[in-house]
């Protein structure tokens, strides 16, 4: 098979795949927020409440915390 053709097909395939993924992601973002599963906008607070003493937006598991000095 002509390598040029293969290249074209792979190129096209990747573009379609990436487009589907990107749009799937948009869909996922808005659906899970609408259903109340997640609130993405709260992550924006991470840059603002960033003292060592501030409460994490989503703390990592409890056992990890006990281990740390």
């Amino acid at each position: 098979m002509d390598i040029k053709l293969l290249q074209g097909v792979m190129y096209f395939g990747l573009i379609v795949f990436l487009t589907v993924v990107l749009y799937g992601y948009i869909f996922h973002l808005y659906r899970s927020e609408k259903r109340g599963e997640r609130d993405y906008e709260k992550y924006g607070r991470m840059a603002l409440d960033d003292e060592l003493t501030s409460t994490p937006v989503e703390p990592i598991e409890e056992e990890r915390k006990k281990e740390s000095p």
């Binding site: 992550y43 991470m46 840059a47 994490p56 937006v57 989503e58 703390p59 990592i60 990890r64 915390k65 740390s68």
Partner: peptide
Amino acid sequence: GIRREKTLYIS
């Protein structure tokens, strides 16, 4: 690996 904040901020 030793983070306290579970989700990674966009930065």
